[in-house]
Amino acid sequence: MSLWRLEWLRMMRTKRWVAIFGVFTFFGIIGPLSARYIGEIVERFGGGVQVTFPEPTPADGIMQYSANVQQLGLLVLVMIAAGALTIESRYEMAVFLRTRVMSTTRLLIPRYVVVAATGILAYVAGSLLAWYETAVLIGTPGTGAMAAGMLYGSVYLLFAVSVVAFFGSTLKNVLPTVILSLVVLVILPIVGLIPSLTDWLPSHLTGALDGLVGGAAIGDFLKAMFVTLAGTFALLYGTIGVLARREL
């Protein structure tokens, strides 16, 4: 039994993967569906009100998916990541590991990788579903745009999980870790409203998938990606430092 298998079992036996995959694939199905049939839905439940919507485009289908997973999908991922990455939330379990694993890097990396990889796989699975359904119902989104969008979105998820890891090591408690991580992830898009910062912030990547399908250039998100990767490494480095110095 290695630390990698421990994290794999944590994800599998606690059924956390079901929650992550469930929310991403659900919106992968629902997003394009709602974009395609929004007119009919409003007509059926609008009490006779007639609303005319423009013909949906492939970007609309992907945007419906993307907007939902960047909120609810991210919320689920943050909660699950906090459960795994608040390594010292239970003293006795922390003693078991900290007295046997001398390197905090060795302790952190399997937890980070397994959670982040599960989140990314779920995101890609949801994106592929959304892609397929959009192609069937509305029109085919560009392959290159989808691939690049998923790459940017995955980088953002790496960043989001590293935010959780940092607060998990600092706060040692699951609930404050979830709250503070969400606060940071919500504040970033607000800061991004400042035009000179928009293209540089990690939150810019959350709009990459639908933006690229809608016609944005791949290079539009490069600055944000480099900043996000640098931020991810900095946060992980900080997490390892905090864990190494912290007393139990």
């Binding site: 039994m1 379990m93 003693v95």
Partner: peptide, 23 residues
């Protein structure tokens, strides 16, 4: 510790094997 705790979804064999592998 005075009240040892382990991941509840591991078996006893897995807990001890993890300890063996790490130590």
């Amino acid at each position: 510790p005075d009240t040892p705790q382990f991941e509840p979804w591991l078996t006893a064999r897995e807990v001890v094997d993890l300890a063996r592998n790490l130590a």
